[in-house]
Computed example of a mutant assay.
Amino acid sequence: MYKREETKQINVGGVAVGGGAPVSIQSMTNTDTRDAEATLKQIHALEDAGCEIIRVAVPDMEAAGRIRTIRDNIAIPLIADIHFDHKLALTSVENGADCIRINPGNIGSEEKVVRVLDACRANGSSIRIGVNSGSVEKELVKQYGVCAESLVISASRHVELFEKHGFTDFKVSLKGSNVPLSIEAYRQFAEQYPYPLHIGITEAGTLFSGTVKSSAGIGAILSLGIGDTLRVSLTGDPVQEVRVGWEILKSMGLRRRGPEVISCPTCGRAEIDLITLAENVQESLKEFRDYFTVAVMGCPVNGPGEAKEADYGIAGGKGQGLLFKKGNIISKVPEGRLLESLTDMLKAEGLS
């Protein structure tokens, strides 16, 4: 059975993937890669948000030619996303791509795939074999339908082709937009192969629905001990993908980056605008990188008690609230200064 610490470890531009390395967070730009300036601006924002590996689309040779400029001006590894034309992969690797993402089934003949493998080997680049529910070979769909088994068989073909030519610096993804299908595909593949896995739910949706869907799917896969790197695929600002990815890892107890906010659901006892307060606290904490827990409670009587496990917290009442630390009340402050008092306390604690 797959164990994260026992998978083969590969290197993606200095980030270890597999072999017990921390589960890394990826995203993908939605800028035109040919516009290097816009792409770099977005990548720098993603770096600030905690993105550890970034992927860019390479639709043509002009985009492939921008890889060098982009790679030389970012701090995180760069993956070139290739479809159909193996020459785009060759040019991207020659221009410094740390990894390429391909579906070998749409690159062309075995000879073309081998040329890509040789180029990656010569330049120290790794590969992601990207299989998803929309790219399964037609004969597999005809025989099995779009299901976990057809995704695994498709991935297996590519794995065996790579192994045949002595190339093993790769990771694999088997994504579907259907959560149960994706979970089962990853489970089946992990039982058969020791290669690191890139996990996610493809085409998950908009910020709200996509976050729910991705959290359910990625969380379930991670709970099986499967997954070495991940991307939350959302229709929207990719910075949100990174933030959601970190929240998933934090909630699973796998990695910690930035504060964790604990807030109570509203009820009839709340005498402050708890919803706005909690949202403002969440927003004010997004620049912090240290890990600590902050509770935002709506009841000044039960708040510190119910959230006594939190490192810091505030509990609101009618026109005023309590500031507390480890369940101990520090001070009573006016409602309008709750947020300010909390951030002042965090800074005084030396948190950043």
Rank of each mutant, 00 (worst) to 15 (best):
I54Q: 04
A204D: 01
I100A: 00
Y195W: 04
T31Y: 00
K318I: 14
E309S: 13
A295V: 00
M297Q: 06
P196M: 06
Y195S: 01
E94H: 12
S182L: 10
L249Q: 05
V333P: 13
G210T: 06
N302E: 05
V242H: 04
A122V: 13
Y2G: 04
D228R: 00
R34T: 15
N178D: 15
I248R: 05
K142Y: 03
R231K: 07
E110P: 12
R34Q: 14
S251C: 03
F167C: 01
D72S: 14
N280G: 10
T7H: 12
A278Y: 09
N328K: 14
G225H: 01
E6K: 05
E184I: 10
G321R: 08
I272M: 15
K250C: 05
E163H: 10
A270R: 14
G316F: 12
L197Y: 10
N11C: 02
P180Y: 03
D48Q: 12
S150C: 14
G236H: 01
T229M: 11
N30Q: 07
H198T: 03
F208H: 08
L322A: 11
L338G: 06
A75T: 14
F170S: 12
A38V: 03
R68L: 07
K347T: 12
V23E: 07
G176A: 15
L174Y: 13
I25K: 02
I221W: 05
V12Q: 13
Y2S: 00
G96H: 09
C264D: 03
N302C: 07
Q42Y: 02
Y186K: 02
H44K: 14
F288H: 07
A348L: 03
C99N: 14
G130K: 02
E260C: 09
L151N: 03
R4L: 01
L90F: 04
I275S: 05
T202C: 02
S126Y: 12
E160D: 12
E47S: 01
M1S: 09
A45N: 02
E160A: 06
F324G: 00
A75K: 15
E110F: 10
G18H: 02
L230R: 06
W246D: 09
C120E: 05
G200W: 05
D72G: 13
L351Y: 10
I153T: 11
I226F: 02
N123Q: 15
T29C: 08
D48T: 11
Q143T: 14
L197H: 06
E340C: 06
P104L: 14
S154Q: 06
S263Y: 14
E110G: 15
T235V: 04
A49I: 07
F189M: 00
D344H: 12
